[in-house]
């Protein structure tokens, strides 16, 4: 993939939102493009690795190990989706596995490269951070909705059902 093709593609990626062509040009040379066979991992749950990934082609599965064994799929990444942003800014073990569901092309930005950019006082580095916050905020918002929905579905129907059942029994066939 040529730098021009890469630039053209990344110009629509949320990570590069509001960046000028010049600013993108500061970052793109630092990216390393890699290809993955179906089933091979981009990111492994556990080991810390401060790398930011952008899917360019193909689909990837994000899955988390279950305590009881096996894995639970959390999401499927499509081209221009970003992954690894949590570990990129907070050096902690990766929270999930990311595997190629089919032949995948992705590019990566290492934290060391980003640090060099930041040391130069690059405006692009600051916008990269701002856009990552945007991605995390959107994810947190979805997580809040999901948690609220989960709690409602997990608790309320059971309560309502038992309450309705109790009421029904008390008001059917009995004279108190």
């Amino acid at each position: 993939m040529s730098p021009t093709e890469l630039d053209q593609m990344l110009s629509t990626c949320v990570l590069f939102l509001d960046m000028t062509e010049t600013e993108r040009a500061e970052i793109i040379p630092l990216l390393e493009v890699k290809t993955f066979e179906e089933g091979t991992p981009l990111v492994l749950e556990g080991p810390p690795d401060q790398t930011l990934w952008i899917v360019l082609k193909g689909r990837c599965q994000v899955a988390k190990r279950r305590k009881a064994g096996g894995e639970k799929e959390l999401a499927v990444l499509l081209p221009l989706d970003v992954v690894g942003e949590m570990s990129f800014f907070h050096a902690a073990p990766h929270s999930a596995n990311v595997r190629a569901l089919e032949p995948v092309t992705a590019c990566r930005l290492s934290h060391n490269q980003y640090a060099l950019l930041q040391e130069r006082g690059s405006c692009a580095a600051n916008k990269l951070v701002a856009n990552t916050v945007r991605i995390l905020s959107e994810r947190l918002r979805r997580m809040d909705d999901w948690a609220a929905d989960f709690m409602e579905r997990a608790a309320a129907p059971e309560h309502h059902e038992e309450w309705r059942d109790f009421r029904a029994k008390l008001y059917s066939g009995w004279k108190f």
């Binding site: 008390l170 008001y171 108190f176």
Partner: peptide
């Protein structure tokens, strides 16, 4: 129990 139950409901 039924009367208390109804009041509770």
């Amino acid at each position: 129990i039924g009367r208390v139950g109804r009041a509770t409901v």
